[in-house]
C-alpha cells in the first residue's frame, strides 16, 4: 500500500473509483489500516481537534464492534461521484480515529482522552530546552556542524514577533 495514495485519499484528492479500489485493498492489508488510523489520529491531534469525548468514543466503539469491515464502503452504497465518496471517507475516518484512539489508550493506559490536547506549550521554554538538547544529536549530514541550531534560533525569532 502506497503511503502517498493513502495521503491523497485522506485529503479527498482521489477519484471515486480509485478511492474505492484503495479502500477495498485495505481490507486485506492490516498495515495500511494501521497507518491510515494513525494518520488520522495524528492529524486530529495536530489540528487540535480532540473531539473524542469519552461518551462519544464508547458509543462509536460499540457501533463499530458490530461492523468489522468499517473501511470498505458497502457495494450497495457504492459511490458514483467524488463528493459522495468523500463523505463516506469522512464517516469512516471518524470511526477509525476513535478505534485508533481506544487501542492506543488501552495499550498504554495513558494519556486519557481529556489529556489529549494539542500542545499549546510547543513554544514553552520547557519544550524548547528539550529541543536544544535533542539538536546535539541531530546527524550532521543534514547540515554541517552547528548549523542545525538555526532551527531553534529561527523559532525563537518567530515567537518574539507573535
Amino acid at each position: 500500500m502506497e503511503q502517498e495514495q493513502l495521503s491523497a485519499l485522506m485529503d479527498g484528492e482521489l477519484e471515486a473509483d480509485h478511492a474505492d479500489r484503495l479502500l477495498r485493498g485495505m481490507r486485506d492489508d492490516p498495515e495500511a489500516v494501521a497507518m491510515w488510523t494513525q494518520y488520522h489520529f495524528i492529524g486530529d491531534v495536530l489540528r487540535g481537534e480532540p473531539s473524542l469525548a469519552p461518551t462519544m468514543s464508547a458509543r462509536l466503539a460499540a457501533a463499530l464492534a458490530a461492523e468489522p469491515t468499517i473501511l470498505a464502503p458497502r457495494r450497495a452504497e457504492r459511490a458514483t461521484n467524488t463528493r459522495r465518496i468523500s463523505l463516506q471517507i469522512a464517516a469512516s475516518v471518524a470511526g477509525v480515529a476513535v478505534v485508533g484512539w481506544l487501542a492506543f489508550s488501552s495499550v498504554n493506559d495513558q494519556p486519557k482522552p481529556d489529556e489529549v490536547i494539542a500542545l499549546a506549550s510547543a513554544r514553552d521554554d520547557a519544550v524548547r530546552d528539550l529541543t536544544r538538547m535533542h539538536l546535539e544529536f541531530s546527524p550532521h549530514t543534514a547540515m554541517p556542524g552547528v548549523a542545525s541550531y538555526i532551527r531553534t534560533v529561527g523559532i525563537n525569532e518567530r515567537d518574539r514577533v507573535r
Partner: peptide
C-alpha cells in the same frame, strides 16, 4: 500536557 505538536521541522509527541 499530552499530545502531538511541531516545532519547526521537529515533530514532538508527549504522553
Amino acid at each position: 500536557t499530552a499530545g502531538a505538536t511541531q516545532l519547526g521541522v521537529i515533530n514532538i509527541f508527549t504522553r
